[in-house]
Amino acid sequence: MSGYMSGIVAILCINLIFAYGIYVTAAAGQLNLGGAGFQAIGAYAAAWLSSVAMQPIWLTIPAAMVITGFVGFLISFPVLRTRGVYMVLATFAFAEVVAGYLLRSKVFGGAIGMVVPDHIDVPVLIGAAVLVTLAVFYLMATRLGLAMRSIHDDEPVSSLMGVNVRAIQVASFTLGGAFAGLAGALYAHHFSFVEAQYFNSLLSIYVLLFVLIGGTQTAWGPLVGSLFFTLIPELLRVGGSWRYVVFGVAIVLMMIIRPEGIVTRELVARLSPRNWFGGKRPALGERHAG
């Protein structure tokens, strides 16, 4: 694999894991526009454990996941007091505070950033991305995943049906935080360097776009969204700065033509192998997430 290709694959894998972190909360109906904050916490936790505490990789990455998951758990309580546009803004503000703190802190290198001694290579990233993808697909097929989808579709009715809405939302924030933290830790170890400027609001916006453009109804969404977002700009690289313009136009058109995202439950059901030969549209009761 050439250096250029492996760079793209590495970013794709990290973005994919990151997108699943945001997806897990979005699947339960919560929009998190503070993804960069969670990823930054994971990245800096891994960087600090690796470079200052001199811990090995097999410890730094799980520890970063646990720390970020715990932060997600803690922040979910105040954030879940808010809804709609307030939740978007609360998570956004959280990410800004994290980035502001990291830029200032002496412990974490401030604006200079931190060098991470242990390096991991692309195959590990691919392995992690595949594992996370499978884990989320499995999660969405469990009872917990079903409860998350029901909250996403209709919160009051889910509550009436006996779903513990608050507990599941907290769980989805915790899990989402852990995945974003994993993405951050992998970023730190792959690029061997972290700086607070990378984890800016644009990153939070992009990763939420991955998820929303891909579609929040099924676990396929983030996968398709990350591929779309990471590869399209690369394919359009010939056009120079124009590629972002084309990209913006693609986003606007997507929202007009297919606002629920590229992949929907109906599309998954239609493409499922069970319907290859019958060709009948699935009845409502049969539809389910991939």
Partner: peptide
């Protein structure tokens, strides 16, 4: 009927 549909104009 989708909880994140309110994000459509935001994303655009």
């Amino acid at each position: 009927g989708d909880a994140t549909e309110h994000a459509i104009p935001l994303v655009s």
